[in-house]
Design a protein around this nucleic acid. Structure first.
Lengths: 227, 227
DNA sequence: ATCCCACTTTTTGTACAACAATTTTATTTT
DNA sequence: AAAATAAAATTGTTGTACAAAAAGTGGGAT
C-alpha cells in the first residue's frame, strides 16, 4: 500500500521496457497514433467510428476512449456531434510548437550540461545518420532524428519532462508528416547533430542552448517556407 | 473545410468562455478532477467504478473514458486489472514538478518581458490577495495564486504552453491538497506576488526569471519540509 | 432555375446488460 | 496457523439500443 511512490521511481528508470500485455485501449491508441502520424488520414478527415471499429476490430467504446486520449495529446480534435478529426497545422502552430519545444528541450539541456553526461542513445542516433545514405529509407532518418531528441529529453531524468515532450513529439511528427521532404542529406544532418553533441560537451549552458536554438529555428523556417 | 485552422486561433483567444453544452465525459472529467483536487479521495485510494457511476449517475463507459483522460493528465494512475488510483507524490515528484514548472512558466515570462504587457488578471489576483485577511476562506487565496500564475501563462498567447501548464497545474493543486497549510499570511503572499509583477515590469528577462525562480523554489522547499 | 422547407438517413453520444479474465475475500483442509 | 481451494467481487471489453444532432434528399413556391 505505501509502495506506490516507490513504483513511480521504477517507472522513471524503465524508459522503454513494457512487459505488460497492454490493454485494448492502449493498443488501439498506439495503432491510431501510428496511422495518424504516417499520414494515413488527410488533415481535416473525420475518423468515423463504425469504420475504425471495423478496421481495428474493436468496440465503439474502446475506439471512443482511445480517440479521447489522442485528443488530450493534440493528435485529434473533437468537434461536438461531429466526431474526431485530424487537425491541420498552420504557421502559428509551427511557431507555437517550436516555442514550447525550446522550453522543454532547453530544460533538458540545462540538466545535461550540469551532469556532463551525453546520453549514449543520442550518440547512436548520430551514428545511424552517418551510416545512412540518401538512398536508404527516409523514415530511418526521421527515426534517428526522433531518437536523438528523445534521448536528450530522457537524459534529464524527469518523468514529467518526458511526458510533456512525448505529447509535443506527436505533434511534431504530425507536422513532419503533413509537410514532408524538407530534410537535407543524411550527411548534413549527421554533421548538424554532431555539432549539437559538441555544444553539450562544452558544458556551457548558453553555448549549448544557442546551438539547439539554431537547430530548432532552422527546422521552423524550413517548415514555414514550405508551401 | 479550410476553416479548421481559423478555429484554432479563436480558441486561443477565448480563454475561459465555454458556451458549449459540454459532453457527459467532459462534465464527469471536471467533476472527478474537482473531487480529486479537493482531497475528497485519499492518496492511494481506488476509484471503484460502480460507486463512481452511482455517485455521478453515469454509465461505466463514461466514467472509464473520463478516468483515462485524467490518467494522461497525471491526476490518476491506472493499474492493470486493479482500476484507477489517486497518486501519492513523493519528494522526487515535488522537485520534478517544480523543474518543469520553471521551464514552462519561464518561457511565458520571456514572452511577457518581450511584449511588456502585464496581464490584468494577474494584477487582479494580487488585489484579491491584498483584500483578503487570514480569516477569509483559505481556498480564496489558493484560487488567487492559481489565477495569478494561470494569467502569466495565458499572456504568452501560446496554446500549447497553456495546455501543458494546465496538466501541470492539476498536479500542483493535488500536491497542495495533499500537503496543505503551508501558506503564509495573505499580506505576505500579496507582497511576494507584487514583487513578481515588478520584476516583469523591469523588462529584463534575467531579473524576472530570477524572481520567479525564487518564488517556485520557496514553494518547493516549503512542500519538501512538510512531514 | 433557385431558394426554402419538411422528411429521411446517417452519425454521434450515452446508457444498459452481459461476459470472460483477473483479483480479492472467505472457507476449508492439512 | 499456514496452505490450498472455493466463492464473490471487480475490471476490461463487447454488443445492442436509442435519443439527439447533423447531413443528405426531394419536392413545391416564388
Amino acid at each position: 500500500m505505501p509502495t506506490l511512490h516507490a513504483k513511480n521511481q521504477a517507472e522513471d528508470l524503465e524508459m522503454n521496457v513494457e512487459p505488460l500485455p497492454a490493454s485494448a485501449v492502449e493498443i488501439l491508441t498506439h495503432a491510431l497514433r501510428r496511422r495518424i502520424l504516417s499520414g494515413d488520414f488527410q488533415p481535416g478527415e473525420f475518423l468515423r467510428d463504425v469504420k475504425m471499429c471495423e478496421e481495428h476490430s474493436t468496440s465503439r467504446h474502446t475506439f471512443r476512449t482511445a480517440a479521447q486520449v489522442l485528443v488530450t495529446q493534440g493528435l485529434l480534435r473533437q468537434i461536438p456531434n461531429r466526431g474526431f478529426v485530424v487537425p491541420e497545422f498552420g504557421p502559428d502552430d509551427i511557431v507555437d510548437i517550436t516555442r514550447v519545444r525550446g522550453a522543454i528541450e532547453g530544460e533538458a539541456i540545462r540538466l545535461i550540461v550540469l551532469t556532463g553526461v551525453i546520453p549514449s542513445q543520442a550518440l547512436e542516433a548520430v551514428e545511424v545518420m552517418h551510416r545512412s545514405t540518401l538512398s536508404s529509407d527516409r523514415s530511418l532518418l526521421v527515426a534517428a532524428d526522433r531518437d536523438f531528441h528523445r534521448a536528450i529529453i530522457a537524459a534529464s531524468g524527469s518523468a514529467r519532462l518526458k511526458r510533456t515532450y512525448s505529447d509535443l513529439e506527436g505533434e511534431i511528427e504530425l507536422l513532419l508528416a503533413q509537410r514532408q521532404d524538407f530534410y537535407a542529406t543524411a550527411e548534413e544532418m549527421a554533421e548538424e547533430h554532431e555539432r549539437l553533441i559538441n555544444s553539450l560537451r562544452s558544458r556551457h549552458y548558453d553555448t549549448a542552448r544557442e546551438a539547439f536554438q539554431e537547430h530548432w529555428e532552422d527546422l521552423q523556417i524550413k517548415l514555414l517556407d514550405q508551401r
